[in-house]
């Protein structure tokens, strides 16, 4: 077993376990922390796949920005105590069953996919480097890139509008 394989298995197990912990933790703060671990594991996978740029971006954007945002919200609302009402037991079972079935079906459907050995090899291919991606991004994908900036702008405006305190003449806020 080469080092890549060992790393692959280690990261996979880490990602799955952390993901499971995310959905089973009672405390939302723990969930967030476990989720950060999931992101780190996935970033590790990206490195194994020679996607260095994405690995870094994943950590910066997800683990750094988004998760911090989550933590902020949780802390702000003081939700860290585990007072979440539980769902009906049968409903939970049905949900787990449905998810499991979906997994089963997809695995069964895709288990015969073409196998290409050793795609996770370090040192093969350099497309994941920032120089190459940057060229592609600013040559072929410049228009979507600019559009995504508009998306960000609108998201920002939306967030501000939603987050503003309602005027008292409009008591019902859920429709906003």
């Amino acid at each position: 077993m080469s080092i890549t394989q060992i790393l692959f298995w280690f990261l996979s197990v880490l990602a799955l376990f952390s993901a499971l912990m995310v959905i089973t933790s009672k405390n939302p703060v723990y969930s967030v922390l476990w989720l950060i671990l999931v992101f780190f594991a996935i970033s590790g996978h990206y490195l194994l796949l020679n996607a260095q740029f994405l690995a870094i971006v994943n950590i910066i954007v997800y683990a750094g920005a988004i998760m911090v945002l989550f933590l902020f919200v949780i802390m702000l609302m003081n939700l860290n105590k585990s007072n979440e009402p539980q769902k009906n037991k049968w409903l939970k079972l049905a949900a787990a069953l449905a998810g499991g079935c979906l997994l089963l079906v997809l695995v069964a459907a895709l288990k015969n996919a073409e196998t290409k050995s050793a795609i996770a090899e370090s040192g093969t291919g350099d497309i994941g480097l920032i120089g190459n991606l940057g060229k592609a991004l600013f040559n072929d994908y410049v228009v979507p890139f600019e559009i995504s900036s508009i998306l960000f702008l609108s998201a920002m405006v939306g967030a501000v509008v939603l987050g503003k305190k309602e005027a008292s003449s409009h008591p019902s806020g859920e429709e906003a």
């Binding site: 993901a19 499971l20 959905i23 009402p85 769902k87 949900a95 787990a96 998810g99 979906l102 997809l106």
Partner: peptide, 11 residues
């Protein structure tokens, strides 16, 4: 699948 189950079981 874990993500889906999570969506389904948590409130």
């Amino acid at each position: 699948a874990i993500g889906i189950v999570g969506v389904l079981i948590r409130r």
